[in-house]
Write a protein that binds this DNA or RNA. Structure first.
Lengths: 209, 209
DNA sequence: TACAGAAACGGGGTGCAGTCCGCTTAACCC
DNA sequence: GGGTTAAGCGGACTGCACCCCGTTTCTGTA
């Protein structure tokens, strides 16, 4: 007689109303972000416009940043899908370094496009978890390109920071970015230099130039 | 008759009481951070403990993050002074790449040591300005090590992000860092690889090894 | 020393993030 | 269908960042 084990075995399905409310909240949130900008979306406002209680909003998303994180995550999933299934060099099939370069360029474009959400989803109280898909993907490519250096995972961390940091931390928050296209281009070119040089020296050893 | 121009020319000195209060607030804030941790310091608490009005605190520091920024800035100044005047390879006198490596290691140690302040001073609403001393210093060293690549300033931005991002964004916020010394060491070693490889290929051209 | 103007100060007021807890309801079992 | 239970829901409540503006204090000038 182990009712605990039994109940653990099938942990009761997600309630339909909860799922519905969550989806609805995301829809309304998306709408409000488009309309007011992320920084003008409040939890009260969202709850009211969704016709739900404030407690419900917090139950689903924990914190204010949680909402933007959830919204960003949807985009992130689409992006990662493109990366995993698209044609090379972004998708599988090209040499690791080429993929790394292509990934960086694509990621920059993606980030600039969703910069507001990406920033709003940062929670200064909690760090970005190491399960970040971006980190995971870079780690995978590095493991292929220069296994020895990639071993500890630190290099991947640093490269992802180099890739995403400028947009997340260091560049203008208000979208007064003079020319996003130009920005992506410049950052992309620099990323290519960075990625190629870092991996070149650590590659399968004696591939003389 | 140009009283405006005249008054602009000498914009009236800082009031003595203001300077005194500011210094006092910083002292009390430092004390409270040490005692309660940055995340438990409130503006009201600070004002009360300092025996000043809340308005005064905000007048001096603008935002909550502003206080921690000011505190961090003091440490930052000390650190930059060490960097500018210390013995090589951290200080002047060594080749640029060696200085870059040494700077990274020193910076990591510094950041880990003041991680709580550094994080608390991040203001998600406003980006880190490009006058960041760290960015400035890396840019200077890069300009010496590989002038062509450094030209745009983007590479410096990316390297600083690679250096500081892991601590600012990606690693555990609560000081459950298993072993800070070990962390600094690992990040430092990885930084060295990064810095040396990136600069090696772009160095003053044909310096054959 | 007296005065005028500007800067600094104080603390009540506002809006929002996040918590709490009693009530409701969907899901499972019979 | 009826009962049980855990999850979900709502909205009043709390605490804090930040604003506002009438009052006070300093400083440069006469």
């Amino acid at each position: 007689m182990e009712p605990v084990a039994l109940s653990l075995a099938r942990p009761r399905e997600v309630r339909a109303d909860a799922a519905r409310n969550r989806a609805h909240l995301l829809d309304v949130a998306r709408e409000m972000v488009a309309e007011l900008g992320a920084c003008n979306v409040t939890m009260d406002g969202l709850a009211e416009r969704a016709g739900l209680g404030k407690g419900t909003v917090f139950r689903h998303f924990r914190t204010r940043a949680g909402i933007f994180h959830a919204l960003f995550d949807e985009e992130e999933k689409r992006f990662q899908h493109r990366v995993m299934t698209g044609p090379p060099p972004l998708g599988p099939g090209a040499p690791a370094v080429e993929r790394l370069v292509a990934y960086g360029r694509a990621r920059l474009e993606f980030l600039v496009q969703h910069a507001a959400l990406a920033r709003a989803s940062l929670d200064t109280a909690q760090p970005i978890p190491s399960e970040s898909p971006s980190l995971f993907h870079v780690q995978m490519l590095l493991a292929e390109a220069c296994p020895v250096d990639a071993r500890s995972g630190i290099l991947a961390l640093q490269l992802v920071a180099a890739l995403e940091g400028p947009i997340l931390l260091y560049l203008q928050a208000p979208d007064d970015t003079p020319d996003p296209t130009r920005l992506v281009h410049t950052l992309g070119a620099s990323w290519q230099v960075l990625a190629e040089r870092v991996t070149a020296a650590g590659a399968a050893p004696p591939a003389r130039r």
